[in-house]
Amino acid sequence: MFYRIILFIAVFLLKCEISNAQYPRQDERNQMVSAQIEARGVTDAATLKAMRTVPRHLFVPSNEASRAYYDSPLPIGYGQTISQPYIVAYMTEVIQPKENFKVLEIGTGSGYQAAVLAEIVDKVYTIEIVKELGGQATSRLKTLGYSNVEVKIADGYHGWPEHGPFDAIVVTAAAEFIPPPLIEQLAEGGKMVIPVGSPFMVQTLMLVEKKNGKARSRSLFPVRFVPFTRQ
C-alpha cells in the first residue's frame, strides 16, 4: 500500500511536471486564481481548475504576454479585448457548467473563454464574426489540443441552429439587443450570460434564464460596488 501511494505521488508529480513543461507559468496561474478569483467569491471547483489549467498567456498577443495574468482585460487587436480573468471565471461559474453540457459561445475573440469551457464541458461551439480573429483562435485551440471546440466564422446573430438547443450560451461581446434566435436555441432551463459595459471597465453581467419557454433576465454585479450611498 505504501509503495502504491509513493508511486501515485510520483506519477502525480510527473504529471504536474509535464503539465508545467507543456504550459509554463503555472505559479502565476495559481496566484491569479487564488488572489483574483477565489478571493472574490468564485467557488465552483471545475471552474477554478479550468482557470488554473488554461495557459492564458498563449491567448494574448506576444507583446501583452507578460501581463497575461494581471487582474485586467487586455487588448487582442481589432478593437477586441480578452476579458479580465475574474470575469471569465465568473461567466463560467454562473452558467453552472456540467460535464455533459453543450455550450454555444458568441464572440470567440482569442479563444480563451472557449478553452476554459472546453476544460469542463463536453462540447463548445463558438462563433466569431471577425475573420482574422476567428482564424487565429481556430489554429490556437487546435495547437493546444482542444478537440471539443468547434469554431465558425459567421454572424453570431443566427446562433448555430444545427447543434441547438444549447444548455448554456455565453455571449462575450456586449450587444444592444439579444438576438431572438439565441433565445430560441437556449434549452429549457438553460442559461445565457452576457457582459455589459465598456471593455476596459469592470463589467457587470446579465443572465437570461429560460423557464417554461419564457426568458427572464437577472442583472449580476460580480464585483461588489454596493453600497453606493454614504450614510
Binding site: 442583472s219 449580476l220 460596488f225 450611498t229
Partner: peptide, 9 residues
C-alpha cells in the same frame, strides 16, 4: 417580476 436587479438600493 421579469428582470431582476441585484442592487436593491
Amino acid at each position: 417580476q421579469f428582470n431582476q436587479f441585484q442592487d436593491s438600493l
